[in-house]
Each structure stands twice: as C-alpha cells, then as structure tokens.
Nucleic acid binder design. Structure first.
Lengths: 203, 203
DNA sequence: TGCTACCAAGCAAGCGCTTGCTTGACAAGC
DNA sequence: GCTTGTCAAGCAAGCGCTTGCTTGGTAGCA
C-alpha cells in the first residue's frame, strides 16, 4: 500500500513555479518552436538560472509533454462542454466552433494549443501514443456533431474527410488570426458556420 | 566585350550537387524541422563531410531559403497553370485544388511545400518579406477564382476569410494525408469541391 | 533538524562554420 | 605529347560557442 504524495502548498498566494514554467515554455515554444527554444530561455522567462527548471522537470522533453497535454486537456474540456449543451445541432455546432477557436486563439490556452498543433512530433513515441488516444476521442466529438447536422439536413457530407476539412479550416486560423485584427473569434466562428451550412433561417 | 563563362559540364549525367543538397535539406526539414536538422545530417544525406555544403551555401539559413523559395515557386507555377486554363469556373477551381494538393502531397514538391508551410518563420526578415510578396500574389489567384464561383452562383461567400478557410482545409491535408492511404489526391480535390459547392450538375 | 526550492559552477557533447589543403579535369603553351 | 596553371568541388581538422543536464551547496521555512 502506498501513500499518495501531494506537493505541499507553501503560502496563501499560489506559488506554483512549475505551472509558471509550463506557461513560459508554452509561450516560447509557440514563438520560436521547441527545438529553437533553450532551457536558458525558459529559465530566464521565469527568473531562474539555467539549471533550476530541472528541479521541476526531468528533461526538456518533459516540459513539452506538460505543455502539450495541458493544451489538449483544455481544448477537450472546452469543446466537450459545448458539445454536451442541449441546443439545436446548429447552435451546438457553433458553440463548439467558438470553444475550439477560443482555446486556439484566445488568451490562456493559446500557447499550449499552438505547441500542440506544431510541436507534437518532438514528443517521445510513448507520449505521442498517449496524445493520439486523447485526440481520437476529441475528433469523435466533431464526427458526431457532423452526423447530427447531416441528419438535420444542414450539410451534405459528414464523412471523416469532411471532418478533416473542417478541422483544417479551424486549425489554420492560427496562421492568420491577429487579436488586434478586424475579426473577433465569435465572428470567425459564425462565418465558418455560415460558410459550411448557409445562413441560419429567419426566426 | 566579355566572354560568357559557362560552368563546366563534367559528365553526361547532371552533376548538380547543389540541387541534391536542397532536396536532402527539404526532406530533412520536413521530417525533423529546420532547427532540429543539423548540417551534418544534410551533408551525410548527400555523402559529404560536414564542412562541404558550405561550398555551395553561405549559411544553413540560406539552405532553408533555397528550399522554401523552391517550394513557393513550384506551387505557384502549378496552380497558375490550372488557373489560366479556359474551363468553366468549377472545373478551373477543381484543377487548382488538384494542383495545390499535388504539390503539397505528391512526390517532388512535397518536401519543399512542407518546409514552406512550417519552417518559414526561421527565415531572416528580409527573406520572409520576399516570400510574403510571392504569397500575396498566390493568394490573389485563389481570391479571383472564388469571385468567379460566386458570380456563377456556386458559392455564397467569396470573402478573404472564406479564402483562408479554404486554404486552411487544403494545407491541413499535410497533417493527415498518407500516400498509401485510401484516398487519392484527385479524390480529395473532388470531395473538397463537392463539400464547398455541392455535387456538380448532371450533364 | 529536515526539507523544499533554488543557485553557482561547470561538464561533455554537439553545434554552425572556417581554414588550409588535396584532387581530378581541363586548357594553353611549347 | 608533355608540362604547367587554373578551377570546381570537395576533405580533414578543428575553432569558438551553445546545448541539455549534473552536482554540491545553502537560505529559509516548518
């Protein structure tokens, strides 16, 4: 029988330096890429010396693992929440688009999601397999909403390739979206829904 | 008056080692990423010692430049050829889809195109500006065909964002297409056209 | 006293790139 | 036909620097 060991909470305000490292690593991985980001970059970003992050992580690759799984977890949770709402298929679909784009482009999860999309190939094979399993469940949610849209007569094609087209259009927004640009995340989500389904019926 | 000096041709077969280096670099950049690829990797792939590629290129970054511009040039040429054919808007559109996907997923240009999509950020700013200029002209071709499709009443939205959705779906194929998979490039192109326009009218 | 979270210092390996030199192919001069 | 000079295309060696990571020590809290 073993006792679960919890990391101790030191003060009133959260002192979680480990989480700070993950955040800084995520931002740097998005800006420069995993391979081009050095431990010294990450350490400097949180005010540490270059050896200190290794107190919290065994290797640099473990930091990537933490970043990517954080991203996958957040986006999964956000979209699942939207998918489980009891709206009409179209409203549910739009809510999922907003959730996905919100994680990809919006404040918190942005760095994690970008690392997830572009740096996963640097993960070790075992970790990659772990990630793929989660990703499969994630994509099944999209497959299901496409099915629902087809049953409702709103789209003609709910195949796997159709889902890949959709996720491609979504994920590619990372390449061109600018937070200070003219389009908001909500507008992009609605426009994509219109692009695929056509305008919603007048009430 | 000056005499034109031609590089000497040594044998019957073309001895262009520089082009070989670009091809090897392209493949490695796609497989491992620019930052994670070493000069020794590239040199080894063409049977050279680690210092020798620098006879042909000033820096590693210049190799990336060559790879990326090669990719942009090839895809631009292929799609321009399709765009200038005198078919109907829909047939022209499908031909452009095939051309774009052919460069992205098919044999030759595949490595260059992947490097173009994912490693451009490691280019020096001046080179990046050069690339963006070409890319703008490329995207204008797509904007135009979307206009034509809208005029023909085949799509409802020909805005810039619609173009970005389209190119996203296209470029994302790199992430999931497998040459030995069940879908051919032609099938993917047709399915994307159907997905956006609907089935073509019966003749 | 013991434990957490860090620092100061540095190690071994690997990095991009440079340098001086070699080699084989060719052209010109005699 | 032989020598001599030039040139493209590399090789062998290694330079200075950076990389991920380790180690021994310690300040401060419990």
């Amino acid at each position: 029988m073993s006792v679960q060991i919890e990391p101790r909470r030191v003060a009133a305000e959260e002192p979680n330096r480990r989480a700070e490292i993950v955040r800084a690593a995520g931002r740097l991985f998005r800006e420069k890429g995993y391979a081009a980001t050095t431990i010294r970059d990450i350490a400097g970003a949180v005010g540490m010396r270059s050896g200190s992050p290794f107190y919290h992580f065994k290797t640099k690759n473990d930091m990537l693992r933490a970043v990517v799984l954080e991203g996958m977890g957040a986006i999964n949770a956000a979209v699942a929440r939207a998918a489980n709402s009891d709206k009409s298929p179209r409203a549910r679909f739009e809510a999922m688009l907003r959730a996905h784009l919100g994680q990809l482009l919006g404040g918190d999860g942005r760095d994690f999601a970008a690392a997830l999309l572009h740096e996963s190939r640097h993960l070790e094979p075992t970790v990659l397999a772990e990630l793929v399993a989660i990703k499969d469940r994630y994509e099944a949610m999209w497959q299901k909403v496409l099915q629902d849209l087809k049953r409702a007569g709103l789209i003609a094609d709910d195949s796997q390739v159709a889902r890949l087209f959709l996720l491609g259009a979504l994920n590619w927004t990372v390449q061109w979206y600018r937070p200070d640009g003219s389009k908001s995340i909500e507008q992009i989500a609605r426009q994509l829904a219109n692009f695929l389904i056509g305008k919603p019926p007048r009430p």
